[in-house]
Nucleic acid binder design. Structure first.
Lengths: 345, 345
DNA sequence: TTTTTTTACGCAATCGTTCCCGGTAACGTT
DNA sequence: AACGTTACCGGGAACGATTGCGTAAAAAAA
């Protein structure tokens, strides 16, 4: 079942003109008389002519679309980022194609190749939890393909990057726990390969030492898939809760890590914050409605999407190769609620 | 900064062949000798040749991509649907382009036109809350453009449709409330224009009358933007709670309607389910973690995405115009939890 | 040896659009 | 009258790939 669109040729034929003339008339060229222009424009309007973007892409060697690679769109943080990306991209006349890795390295590679072969003009990437090897992206980057990393960035590739101050976020969250009187703070961390995991780990570490606590590696548990797999969280917590001195507070370093942690506690009837406190990185819109309401580090996701897209489009539209790359750091925000014994709200 | 891809011409030149030969060799045509094939294939492999999909699209008059129009991807129900769509689409070699209406009719129209002009092969649509006029879609449909509606469907356009049994979902939820002893059940409904609103309304109505209750229109409050705007929910609830006989239970007919309802109760310190019970349509993954845990009608979102995509691709790949359209109805599922006085879980 | 068939490849058109050329009027300048 | 300008428009190549058709050489059949 095909769908026949009207082309510039149809207009030319109908009006007894050449395609060149029609094309120029439509683009308002000075070489075309006002009468002809009017004629063409009106006719085009009538039959609802739309230029074929495929043909344009072929000619201009650009598709005016950008690819996004994220782990999961069913994740508030990333869907908010995508909204930010969209808001800028559409304004600047770019289309957006989203691909999900579902935290799988393999799918990330496939998606990258797929998007690259779809002749997109640039790529916005947040790598998967599993990703260590970066050849799939390095390859593109070396051939001059515009890439911007956001949130989960990588050191090995030199290009624009947009992140939040994960160090600060984790630092403040940890310090808040300490100031609230918690003594044994565990870190439920994501994949060790991720930049965000390391940065948050450092913030956690620093907050501990700055406040005269010692950093105990035994209190750190990594979940490779960042909480996507409940069993990973379960076994991490099982481990933490069998330690000699059980932690009395937990820092959840990702959205699903935090909510699954809460789910675990609920299942075991462990009271938060009475038995154990919980603070987590989360961009969910309803952490205030959870039981108990969650103290969270919230990230400016929408803004992150906007900034990344702006940088990417700069890269795409730059006449000559860009060599000076920047790293934008956005501030996170701590919301104190019941799960750390904080105020109701 | 452009990115030069290797073309079939480059291969032809390098190997001293014509482009036709190279093309045929790559497509494994019988007209090409085994040696030439091997030569071409190996060289193509070496320089990492990928056929230009834009050129292919132009030639074949199809882009192997489908458009999706939803109100919001930052909504579990829709992001789950999108995952379902993706899972089928990618398997069948289709790309997916997502556009959000944000419940705005205007943006829906713009997005439709945008997608249509992007030469997508078909469209998967769930209309916005505001949508009444359907010219933008009718237009395409009449010109033979493949469209499949899901969730929020429209009567005026005859094509494949995939929905859940909203009547049943609302009926069972309402009946559950009645059986649980609630006497005055209000309906916090979405936009009056939406099919799902009407169907759920009917289920609610029928459950009341089947159980010897009378249907009181005063207990029905519509929110045009389906809970996206908190103030709409607020004023609806304000109204309901000033009635002479206040409702003692509420049926929230959309995800955000339900969560914002809960937010309202929390703000006013209204106890659920003691002061008032709440059951809602929701596909959130953490309704079990809310305070109180929510009794919900859950919809098979992923499956809905799969079925819709399958039908759309059938439409796209059908040789002749399809005249026989089907309406698939998927079953919803009721999960009973604390918010209606139900079991812990 | 001649004719026919097969094999293996190239030429050129095509998809929709843009844009470099080139061409032809009409008009103005010397 | 001869030439230069300007205004306006068309021809055709190009973008990357596919494909129907034509054809040379090689192989098979006569």
């Amino acid at each position: 079942m095909k769908f026949e669109a009207v082309t510039i040729k149809d207009i030319a034929k109908a009006l007894g003109l050449s395609t060149s003339t029609v094309s120029r008339a439509l683009r308002d060229s000075y070489e075309i008389s006002p009468e002809t222009k009017k004629l063409v424009l009106e006719y085009a309007q009538n039959i609802n002519y739309r230029p074929n973007p495929i043909a344009l892409s072929l000619k201009e060697k650009r598709s005016r679309s950008i690819g996004i690679i994220v782990c999961e769109i069913a994740n508030s943080f990333f869907s908010q980022i995508i909204n930010g990306i969209e808001s800028i991209a559409y304004d600047r006349g770019y289309n957006v194609i989203i691909a999900q890795s579902h935290e799988s390295y393999e799918r990330e590679v496939i998606n990258t190749q797929y998007l690259a072969s779809r002749s997109i003009d640039g790529l916005l990437v947040s790598v998967s939890s599993e990703t260590q090897d970066l050849h799939h992206l390095k390859n593109l980057h070396e051939r001059g393909f515009p890439i911007v990393f956001f949130d989960r960035v990588v050191d090995e590739i030199d290009t624009h990057k947009v992140i939040v101050d994960n160090f600060k976020g984790a630092y403040e969250a940890t310090e808040h726990l300490i100031k609230s009187g918690y003594r044994h703070i565990a870190n439920l961390a994501g994949s060790e390969y991720l930049s965000i995991t390391k940065e948050r780990m450092n913030g956690y570490h620093q907050a501990l030492t700055d406040n005269g606590r010692e950093f105990d590696p035994g209190y750190v548990q990594h979940c490779l898939h960042g909480g996507m797999v409940y069993e990973e969280v379960e076994s991490a917590l099982d481990h933490l809760l069998t330690l000699n001195t059980k932690p009395d507070a937990i820092l959840g370093c990702a959205d699903k890590l935090t909510t699954n942690c809460l789910r675990y506690f609920k299942k075991r009837k462990i009271k938060v914050p009475d038995d154990i406190a919980l603070v987590g990185f989360s961009n969910l819109d309803l952490t205030d409605l959870l039981s108990p309401s969650l103290t969270v580090v919230r990230q400016p996701a929408f803004e992150m999407g906007q900034v990344s897209t702006d940088l990417l489009i700069q890269l795409i539209e730059s006449k000559r190769p860009v060599k000076d790359f920047e790293k934008r750091v956005l501030p996170p925000q701590l919301f104190i609620r019941e799960s750390t014994g904080g105020g109701k709200s």
